[in-house]
Design a binder for these strands. Structure first.
Ligand SMILES: NC(=O)c1ccc[n+]([C@@H]2O[C@H](COP(=O)([O-])OP(=O)(O)OC[C@H]3O[C@@H](n4cnc5c(N)ncnc54)[C@H](O)[C@@H]3O)[C@@H](O)[C@H]2O)c1
Ligand SMILES: NC(=O)c1ccc[n+]([C@@H]2O[C@H](COP(=O)([O-])OP(=O)(O)OC[C@H]3O[C@@H](n4cnc5c(N)ncnc54)[C@H](O)[C@@H]3O)[C@@H](O)[C@H]2O)c1
Lengths: 207, 207
DNA sequence: ATCTTCTAGTGAATTAATTCACAAATAATA
DNA sequence: TATTATTTGTGAATTAATTCACTAGAAGAT
């Protein structure tokens, strides 16, 4: 059975929400509550969960801890995954020190930039390198994810290097669509496009 | 006729791509090319465009300039929209000075933070204010969009204030789902979730 | 003990989205 | 000029996604 992207996306959100509930000490959660959190209907949520064979309890819902654990195992969301950031400008450095990634199962283990002076000046607890050492470090440190925060014109080039270096996934913050070889998962996060979507959406609403 | 979110999203991407093509001096673009850029099939793209009644030319495709202009008008993507950022920490300050927004039709006209010392120390060409003045400034400057970059625990509170102040759209970078009154469009941009999606996606792929 | 209410699970129905298939148009080519 | 190759536009077909409608089980109320 392979799940649709929509389903995977909802499940990731559910996982995040379960994480929060667990910290709050909540024991059970209903499909209705989950639905509200991820922006879907309770039917859809139950269908999603049914693909996973999740164990729900009548009149109580899903047991937060065990459900989260199961999702974590199923999607390997629990074991820490190593990531690196390429491009240590304003956005890249903000991401470098973002502690939440750590808590959420991602560990930034290296930063890269082409500007060697910049590398020397950056104050952070994370190791930073010249981008020429990308392949070497990705390999040595078993890095699975690459986060692109370089200017648009270099984004594809970096994506190619990451792919060649053997990462399995890429999160791209530059405002161009990158293309990657089959077998590598990537997501383009274009802030401008999100703003456009919002703008277009509310223009549509008026009609 | 109201367009689906998927269609709106693709159209926003198309708009961005047309913008780039225009700068490059390209005159025509085919549905096939557009499809490649937005990650859809040419059929889907043509259907999307057909909802808009777009004028395509046989064997040439769509005329970049006029098509972009039409989309701009239809979705009011051309006239500059005013936005503000709340939370001037690492992410918020990176966004403050991101020049691309300007070029892409969005203008950051104010920043807000609750930390008054911080406000005094920030070096930027954009006006920054104490968050207590949010409603006042949003109103005075006709701000339509709010960008939330405060810690998770304050995000909903700020969303409420933005809604009360009368913004029409909210882009939320904090890792919680915010809820907003009917009639306000919002997008949650959760980086961690994007990473999770990538991770889950490539686990799925292996099976 | 019985009744009511709530919630999961799921096949069927519905709705939505995508893809196909092909006509029409026209640029390029021979 | 005739032919070929492309490319749009769109109704029909297909596929995918969501919602409905119902069963079953268990908690809580009476
Ligand atoms: N700053 C923002 O708020 C923001 C918002 C949305 C999108 N973005 C996008 O994120 C990316 C980074 O933005 P930024 O504002 O941090 O830019 P920036 O100019 O501050 O930083 C870019 C960094 O990348 C480095 N770099 C350039 N080419 C490189 C290469 N080939 N290899 C390695 N490093 C290289 C530069 O030395 C610099 O340190 C851009 O694509 C931008 O469009 C930024
Ligand atoms: N830094 C990142 O790379 C990153 C990545 C993903 C998500 N985020 C999210 O973006 C948000 C901001 O992250 P950050 O790293 O910039 O945090 P930060 O702590 O550096 O900055 C937060 C800012 O918000 C201000 N603030 C707090 N409460 C406020 C309130 N009620 N009203 C106005 N201002 C308030 C603080 O004074 C501070 O300046 C967080 O929700 C974070 O989870 C950040």
């Amino acid at each position: 059975m392979d799940l649709s992207d929509n389903t995977i996306e909802r499940i990731c959100k559910i996982f995040g929400y379960l994480h929060a509930l667990e910290k709050k000490g909540v024991d059970f959660v209903s499909s209705k509550d989950l639905a509200k959190m991820v922006g879907a209907t309770e039917y859809t949520i139950r269908k999603d969960i049914s693909f996973l064979g999740g164990p729900g309890y009548t009149r109580k819902g899903y047991e937060v801890r065990s459900f989260k654990k199961e999702l974590g195992q199923r999607f390997q969301l629990t074991e820490k995954r190593k990531a690196c950031i390429i491009g240590l400008g304003r956005l890249g450095t903000a991401l470098l020190d973002y502690e939440n990634f750590q808590e959420d199962g991602f560990e930034i283990v290296a930063g890269f930039d082409c500007n060697v002076n910049k590398i020397e000046r950056i104050r952070t607890s994370i190791d930073v390198f010249a981008v020429s050492r990308l392949a070497e470090i990705v390999d040595a440190r078993n890095i699975e994810l690459g986060i692109i925060a370089v200017p648009a014109e270099s984004a594809q080039e970096i994506a190619d290097q990451l792919a060649a270096a053997g990462v399995k996934g890429i999160l791209n913050f530059s405002p161009v669509k990158i293309s990657v070889p089959e077998g590598i998962v990537h997501v383009d996060m274009d802030f401008t496009n999100a703003l456009r979507f919002i703008a277009a959406r509310f223009v549509m609403m008026k009609k």
